[in-house]
Design a binder for these strands. Structure first.
Lengths: 181, 181
DNA sequence: GATTGATGTCAATGAGTGTTGACTTATCGC
DNA sequence: GCGATAAGTCAACACTCATTGACATCAATC
């Protein structure tokens, strides 16, 4: 018989993939269990509840090192690449678009958003200098993310092109820059 | 006995308020019927289905005149005021944040997003000049909206202050401006 | 080999969902 | 007043969902 930890890992892996691509409320525990090849009841055993299983998939969100983005240039670079090299549809969502994917779920959405924003907040404020401007920047990133990943807006979908990449870089740079007053 | 049109209007009014504040999937037909004080079955009678009722609440989305925003200045003004004077929590969502509120619902989210984007698209492109930049601008607006209305991010929540309003105006203005290349 | 505890199976529960059809009641035209 | 049509009521259906508890099965320990 398998070790319990294996089953746990199996559930967590498939839960992450499913939750992060379809959103919390669009995935049932039966679906996760079936994908993992185990019985539904084991979710309750190992994670207590569906929400417990979901929260277990959020661990990796906290493992990115914020010191990777210490200057404004590298921050812009990082974001440009994040969107330009975005994986195609059906794959896992980026951590940021995860927020939007669950925005309508008061319980889950706030959990994800808080984790994400608290993570980015200090770094963004350090670089941008203004708390409110950092919040605007973060919000704009969410918008780009949902525009690209969920709504597939014309234009944003093809962020890979050089011309568009330059435009995107320009927008981010000016957004980070200090106002002229 | 009431006229049928009255019941129809009553259902539509309460449906709009509920759908636009909690999102489509977070509102049940029974909840709408109870708020309107009528029987659930009447939703099927007058609107065919829950989705039909929802689509009926989208009519007002199409009634805003895009010619109100013909210059870049008035566009920025309109957006600044839209966010600065945003109604408090619990009230109806703005049309834009409606998109995010339903982003995780593949059926409903796309309906709302398409209506909204197709409405703004031509006007934005006319003002901004670039199709992709217009898409980015629209996406950023969605992000601001969800940051303010749904996630209540520190900073964005208080967009009414003069200092913040100035920062917001600056960000929008530079975002609309042409790149220096 | 028996006992114990971890692990996995199965069926059922109870709450919620949108939708349907038969029925009753009111309103209007004649 | 009568009949046709509109309007509203009620109960049920068929489904999905997360969760639970009783039961079975395995692995390790004594």
């Amino acid at each position: 018989m398998k070790k319990g930890q294996d089953t746990r890992d199996l559930l967590q892996t498939h839960a992450r993939r499913l939750f992060w691509s379809k959103g919390y409320s669009n995935v049932s525990v039966r679906e996760v269990a079936k994908a993992a090849g185990v019985d539904v009841a084991l979710i309750a055993r190992y994670f207590g509840s569906k929400l417990g299983l979901f929260e277990a998939t959020l661990d990796t969100l906290k493992k990115i090192d914020p010191d990777d983005f210490l200057t404004a240039d590298s921050l812009v670079d990082a974001f440009v690449e994040m969107f330009a090299n975005a994986p195609k549809e059906g794959t896992e969502a980026s951590p940021i678009s995860m927020i939007l994917l669950n925005a309508n779920d008061s319980e889950v959405g706030i959990i994800v958003a808080r984790i994400q924003y608290e993570y980015w907040q200090s770094g963004l404020e350090k670089i941008i200098g203004s708390k409110s401007q950092a919040a605007l920047f973060f919000a704009a990133m969410m918008g780009f993310s949902v525009g690209q990943k969920i709504l597939h807006l014309d234009g944003i979908a093809e962020l890979g092109s050089d011309e568009y990449r330059a435009q995107f870089r320009h927008m981010l740079t000016t957004a980070i820059a200090s106002p002229d007053f």
